[in-house]
Structures are given as C-alpha cells and as structure tokens.
Design a protein around this nucleic acid. Structure first.
Lengths: 124, 124
DNA sequence: GGTGTCTTCAACCAAGTGGTTGAAGAACAG
DNA sequence: CTGTTCTTCAACCACTTGGTTGAAGACACC
C-alpha cells in the first residue's frame, strides 16, 4: 500500500461496489453486515472493500461492542476536487487563449509550425 | 474494458504517471514520444497508458502524418465532479443536521472543532 | 464457564495491470 | 524501392485484485 494518497482515493472509487458503499454511507453510518446485505458477495469481500476505503481515508471505523460501525470521511473528497479543478481550469484557460488567438488571427498568417492542431474544433 | 464510464475515469486517474500525463496535456497537445520522454519507461508503456486514458474519454488522438498528437478532453472531468459533489453535499448536509442536534443540546462545547467526530451514529 | 453473533485473518484462485522485449504498420526522406 | 522515424501490436512476466472458503478474535448473552 505504498501509493500516494491521491492514487489511493482514485483507486478506491474506481470500483462500483465501493462507490455504492460510499453513497449509502452518506445517509448514515452502518455496520459491515448491513453494508454487505444488498450485495450477493460474502461479508469478507465487503470487509476487504472497506479496508480499501479506509486506507484511502474515505471511511473510518469505530468500535461498538463486537460491531465496527463505518463512518464516511467527506474531507478526502477535497483532495480529488482540488486536483480535478486545478487541471480543468488550466485546460479551459488554454482553450480560451487558443480561441482568442484564432479570433484575432488574420487568415494569411502561419507563424508557428502546425504541431498545434487548432482545427479539430469541437471544443466547448 | 466493460466497466462503467465512471469506473474507467477513476481507474485511469488512479495511476500517478497517467495523472502526470493529464497535467502535462493541459499545457498543450503532445505526441507519444514527447510524453514518454521525461519518464524512464519505454514508449510502449506510455502508449498503453494513453490507451487507458483514451478508453476513459480523457484524451483523444488525431493523426498528423506518422504522429498521433494526444489531446486532453476536459469534459469527462465533469462526470467525476458531479459524482463527488453529489455525495459530498449529502454528507455535509447530514453533518450539518447532526451539528444542529448537538447545538441544541444543553452542554455545548467547542463550537467549531476542525476534525470533529461527533459520535458514531444515531442515538440509541 | 459455554454458545452465538459479528468481524477479520489466512490461504488460495482467476483475472487484470504495468512493465518488458521484439516485430509489424504507417508515413515521410532519399 | 530502401531506409528512417513514430507508433502500435503481441507475447510474456511479476504483481495486484476481487472474489471464494475456512478458521480465528472479540464480545454479549445464557
């Protein structure tokens, strides 16, 4: 488990069962048995999923007698959101600049070698 | 390859090399060789990474002579952002309600602790 | 004490992943 | 046509992963 935190979070959410578990936990804490109930896999498999989510910092477990209630930790979402937003902003910024260049460019110019591909369009 | 789109996107970004490739592509399109240059892996390995990113819809490839410039598709980010924001909002909403319950209790301590863990679940 | 319930640990297995090397396609330069 | 360059395809390997079954820990209840 020597991956960086961001990789762990993305990897943890790459599984639909684990995403579903996270979604269910937004409505309240739950035990392993309760979480395993709606799926047709064994409780051990769900316990493994929870370990992945816990290693990623997405959930935490406390102790309540012999039960281990699972609790959602929403703060780790910020890690992803920050990464996503950062690069999306950069990408959109770049598209905006490219649009400006195209808009102010007279049609008899070809200043840069065409390693750039401005013609495919379809950029929203 | 038969995973749902959200799983493909999360899985694609779970690798630091692929995240780095995405980051580099925000500054402009690049060829496979250019992208492979800073890493000490073979070009074939980077080509595989690009296939994963392409299957996830994060990049697209065009044709420019014998080169295949790689282009970042920022729209797929929205898929992730929507999923994250949806459940984060639900989680925060639930915490807020929990906070209200705690606040109306007679013994109010520590109005805003940064990493508060207010109990493990509903009151028994 | 013993028994039952909830959870995890251990060993195992099929399938996937990230990496390699080697060969093959695709398109330009001579 | 012959090379050269850029890229991908194919086979292979070590390692991880998501699943199973079976046994063991932890704790309440009798």
């Amino acid at each position: 488990m020597s991956a960086d935190p961001l990789s762990r979070v993305f990897s943890a959410l790459a599984d639909p069962t684990r995403r579903d578990i996270v979604a269910r936990l937004t409505t309240g804490d739950a035990t392993v048995g309760e979480l395993a109930d709606p799926y047709d896999v064994t409780v051990q498999a769900v316990s493994k999923h929870l370990k992945v989510l816990e290693d990623a910092g997405l959930v935490s477990r406390t102790r309540d007698a012999q039960r281990r209630p699972v609790h959602l930790e929403a703060e780790v979402f910020d890690l992803m959101t920050r990464w996503i937003e950062r690069y999306r902003r950069q990408a959109e910024e770049r598209y905006r600049q490219l649009d400006d260049v195209l808009r102010t460019m007279p049609d008899d110019v070809e200043p840069t070698p065409p390693t750039d591909r401005p013609g495919t369009g379809a950029t929203p």
